[in-house]
Amino acid sequence: MGGCISVIVPIFNVETYLGDCLRSLQIQSDADYEIILIDDGSTDGSPELAEAFRSNSDRCTLWRSSSNRGLGASRNKGVQLARGDFVCFVDADDVVSPDFLACLRDRQKITGASIVSGLIRRMTESGEVLGTRMIGDAPDVDPPLTVHERVLGLVNPSVACARLYRIGLLRDDACLFRDRIPHEDLFFTYKVLRNRDTADADEAVYFWRHREDSLSARITRAHVDVWLELKRDTDAFLTANQGSPREFALAARRSLMFVNGVLRKADEQQRLDVLEYLEGLSQEFGSLMMQDYDFVRHSEIKAIYLPKRLEKYLNDLGFS
Rank of each mutant, 00 (worst) to 15 (best):
V159D: 09
L152K: 09
R178Q: 02
T198L: 11
I181M: 13
D185K: 09
E149L: 08
I167T: 15
N156S: 14
Y165Q: 03
D173W: 06
I167G: 07
L169S: 08
F187C: 10
D137L: 05
V151C: 04
D197K: 02
N195M: 08
P182A: 14
E149T: 04
I135L: 11
R171L: 07
D172I: 09
D137S: 10
A204C: 06
Y206D: 08
N195Y: 08
D202K: 00
L169M: 00
V151Y: 03
G153S: 01
H148N: 00
T198R: 05
D185P: 07
T146D: 01
H148L: 07
R178M: 06
S158E: 03
L154F: 12
K191G: 07
V141R: 06
P139N: 10
P139T: 04
G168Q: 11
L154Y: 03
A138S: 15
R166V: 05
E184W: 12
Y165C: 07
R150K: 11
T198K: 08
K191C: 05
A199C: 12
L186N: 00
Y206N: 10
L154C: 03
F188A: 11
R194Q: 05
A199L: 10
A174R: 11
C175W: 13
R166P: 10
A174L: 01
G153C: 02
D173R: 14
Y190V: 04
V151H: 04
D140C: 14
A201I: 06
N156Y: 15
L186I: 03
F177I: 00
G136D: 06
I167H: 12
V192P: 04
V147D: 15
A204H: 02
L164C: 03
R178T: 03
A162G: 09
L193M: 08
P157Q: 09
A199I: 02
A174E: 06
I167W: 07
A174M: 01
P182L: 12
V141W: 04
V155S: 01
D185W: 02
R178L: 03
G168R: 13
P143V: 04
G153I: 06
I181R: 14
V205P: 00
P143F: 05
L176H: 15
M134Q: 13
C161E: 13
L145A: 02
D202E: 10
D173P: 15
E184L: 13
G168C: 07
V155T: 14
D200K: 07
F187T: 03
L154K: 06
R163V: 09
L170M: 15
V147W: 13
D197M: 01
L164P: 05
C175K: 12
T189M: 14
D185A: 02
E203S: 06
V192E: 04
R171H: 09
R180Y: 05
L170W: 12
R196D: 04
P139Q: 11
G136K: 00
E184C: 15
C175L: 14
E184S: 15
R163S: 13
N195H: 14
P157N: 09
E203A: 06
R180P: 07
R196W: 06
T146S: 15
V205F: 03
S158Q: 00
P144Y: 06
V151G: 08
P182W: 11
R194D: 08
K191I: 02
P143R: 11
R166D: 09
D202A: 09
A162M: 05
C161I: 10
V205I: 05
G168D: 13
P144H: 10
C175D: 12
D200A: 10
M134S: 14
L176C: 12
